[in-house]
Simulated assay, not measured.
Amino acid sequence: MRALVYDTAFRARASHKQAWGFGLIAAASGIWLWLACQVLLPYSVEHGRNDRECASRVFYESTRESYAEAEGTSCAMERDWADLLAVLLFSLPLAVVGTVLYTSGATDNRLSRHVAEVNRLTQFPGSS
């Protein structure tokens, strides 16, 4: 009976670990989607009394000029690469820890089921 209680608690901890891992992976994925929108989609910037339309950081028209020269410094300052890179670097530990937790929890669950099945087959050798 104590083995069943321990196995149930072990599986609950493994499921909890797996859920935390999934949550961290989802958070990192959300950050990556937000960054993709920041880099790929056009945007507007308040420039004095007018709104100025800015092309995306990736798909701006000119190939010979830098983004700041082609779109203007107000557009370049609004979506600076350094800020976007800092957010990306913040998301990497979330993704790594989430992957480790999810994998560890899934492995613990699978091993618990495997041991339970081996014990069941050992108790009743005639049934397979």
Score class of each variant (00 low, 15 high):
residue 97 V to D: 00
residue 106 A to T: 15
residue 40 L to F: 14
residue 21 G to T: 05
residue 36 A to I: 08
residue 36 A to E: 10
residue 121 L to I: 01
residue 20 W to S: 05
residue 55 A to W: 06
residue 22 F to E: 04
residue 87 V to I: 10
residue 88 L to V: 03
residue 32 W to Y: 04
residue 107 T to R: 13
residue 93 P to T: 11
residue 46 E to H: 06
residue 29 S to A: 10
residue 83 D to T: 15
residue 99 T to S: 13
residue 54 C to A: 02
residue 67 Y to N: 01
residue 61 E to K: 12
residue 42 P to C: 04
residue 125 P to H: 09
residue 86 A to M: 08
residue 69 E to N: 02
residue 57 R to N: 00
residue 21 G to A: 10
residue 97 V to T: 08
residue 32 W to S: 14
residue 77 M to T: 03
residue 58 V to E: 03
residue 26 A to E: 14
residue 97 V to A: 05
residue 79 R to M: 05
residue 112 S to N: 11
residue 49 R to D: 01
residue 59 F to D: 11
residue 61 E to M: 02
residue 127 S to E: 13
residue 103 T to E: 08
residue 112 S to R: 11
residue 83 D to V: 15
residue 75 C to G: 05
residue 57 R to E: 01
residue 49 R to W: 10
residue 24 L to G: 01
residue 68 A to R: 14
residue 125 P to E: 00
residue 96 V to W: 07
residue 46 E to F: 00
residue 54 C to N: 02
residue 20 W to H: 03
residue 98 G to M: 06
residue 101 L to A: 07
residue 34 W to P: 06
residue 83 D to M: 08
residue 88 L to P: 00
residue 97 V to I: 08
residue 45 V to P: 07
residue 33 L to I: 10
residue 60 Y to H: 09
residue 97 V to C: 09
residue 82 A to P: 00
residue 115 V to H: 05
residue 106 A to F: 07
residue 20 W to A: 05
residue 123 Q to D: 07
residue 21 G to E: 08
residue 38 Q to C: 07
residue 64 R to C: 04
residue 66 S to T: 15
residue 38 Q to S: 09
residue 82 A to Y: 11
residue 70 A to C: 03
residue 113 R to T: 07
residue 50 N to Q: 15
residue 88 L to G: 13
residue 42 P to W: 04
residue 42 P to T: 03
residue 51 D to I: 11
residue 96 V to C: 06
residue 102 Y to V: 05
residue 102 Y to P: 04
residue 65 E to G: 02
residue 75 C to F: 09
residue 35 L to W: 10
residue 53 E to Q: 11
residue 20 W to Q: 15
residue 119 N to Y: 08
residue 20 W to E: 15
residue 60 Y to E: 13
residue 116 A to P: 00
residue 126 G to K: 07
residue 107 T to D: 07
residue 42 P to H: 09
residue 80 D to M: 12
residue 69 E to C: 06
residue 120 R to C: 06
residue 45 V to N: 04
residue 36 A to R: 12
residue 99 T to G: 14
residue 59 F to L: 10
residue 124 F to R: 13
residue 93 P to K: 02
residue 86 A to D: 12
residue 22 F to N: 13
residue 64 R to E: 12
residue 53 E to L: 04
residue 76 A to R: 00
residue 35 L to E: 04
residue 96 V to R: 01
residue 92 L to T: 14
residue 71 E to S: 02
residue 78 E to Q: 11
residue 79 R to S: 05
residue 62 S to D: 06
residue 120 R to Y: 09
residue 42 P to V: 07
residue 39 V to S: 10
residue 87 V to T: 05
